[in-house]
Nucleic acid binder design. Structure first.
Lengths: 204, 204
DNA sequence: AAAATAGTTGACTGGTCAGTCTAGTGACTG
DNA sequence: CAGTCACTAGACTGACCAGTCAACTATTTT
């Protein structure tokens, strides 16, 4: 007995796919219903608006990714290696998406957040919340790296936000240029931003 | 005698304002006409589609900003000082926009490019082209800084793209969080990415 | 002044939009 | 078996969408 009905799940998946591949504005409720095999009535049974579905779809996507993230950023791993694994993970995901749909899609949170930031505050707030959750992985890893003397980061929170912004900017460029290699190249930049001491360099 | 008619100019301005403040998808042709004081017929006299106007508006915005950029990145200035001035310039512009319309709007190129990248290829291509023009300012400054031994950047092109992505990511975060301070904080990150040698630090 | 060109007007089209509503279905419960 | 509840069906609404068009005016060219 599923905690979430099949149809609700399918609607969230359809919304995520369509919004990520195209955009929020270009994705109609009808299109989401069609992809999910649902009718209008079902849609508005589960969600009271298009924007509410968007927010729910983001949360759902997070739940799906969380176990991967927990594993990648496991505290049992050397802190800089966590980043190494994470950037590989992102690259592989983006490359796979490109193969599947022809385009590098970048980060769904940033793309959606930027698009609706002045229009749909509930969605914007959900994006902000999820970005914060992601950043907290960065913060822990940076704090650990600092404690182990691998990098100099007296303010791990600030360093994490800086690194995260750089990484998001790179993903966005990769979307616009449809070039997944930009993400691969990012590892070196990440090390500059982290201020890694060269003796501790992870093999890149 | 203006080379470009008043009405055409007003339409491009209206399009720029509305798309930047909201989004491409949320901005209707009717809304642009109303803001410009134009009727439908005029719109389609000057532009053959909404997307063509968007591309023209971006080019127009570039022309308006170019003289500022040329001055900020003047080769007569110490190269790292150019970045210092540029990031101040961006911060001040964003802060003013926030005062005027209540929101930090980030970079119109990135926001629009990300939104339409899989939908409107002509707009995407124009965004890409304009981003490249901006990056070329970065490349020159970085090349000069390297030549003067201020930083170590054997590949100025790559370094410029890295710095540019980081800066764009920061602007995007600033938009989503509606927080202009993120842009101010970016100067320190920029220096990390550039790999500045500390003895040459510009007063921040 | 005549003709041509550039710009303006606003009604109109056909389609799509997000969201509503009523009538149902089937499964589970008392 | 009667009642309730979660879900589905799909027609419908009224607003809005991008884009068209033919008639009109103003300006420039000949």
């Amino acid at each position: 007995m599923p905690r979430v009905s099949d149809m609700k799940e399918r609607l969230m998946d359809a919304a995520m796919d369509l919004i990520w591949e195209n955009s929020y504005g270009a994705t109609s409720v009808d299109a989401m219903c069609e992809r999910a095999g649902a009718k209008k009535g079902s849609f508005y049974h589960f969600f009271k608006s298009k924007s509410e579905l968007a927010a729910a779809a983001l949360e759902n996507e997070w739940k799906r990714r969380k176990s991967d993230m927990d594993e990648i950023f496991s505290p049992t791993l050397p802190p800089l290696e966590r980043f190494d694994r994470y950037f590989d993970y992102v690259h592989d995901n983006q490359a796979e998406r490109q193969r599947k749909c022809g385009s590098v899609l970048g980060c769904p949170l940033l793309a959606l957040g930027s698009e609706v930031s002045t229009q749909e505050d509930a969605v914007r707030a959900k994006v902000d919340e999820l970005l914060d959750r992601k950043i907290s992985y960065f913060v822990s890893a940076i704090r650990d790296a600092h404690a182990q003397g691998l990098i100099n980061a007296p303010d791990p929170e600030a360093k994490a936000r800086a690194l995260f912004s750089c990484y998001q900017g790179t993903l966005m460029q990769a979307r616009i240029q449809n070039d997944v290699e930009l993400i691969r190249d990012f590892k070196k930049v990440a090390m500059d931003v982290l201020g890694m001491k060269h003796a501790h360099a992870v093999a890149l």
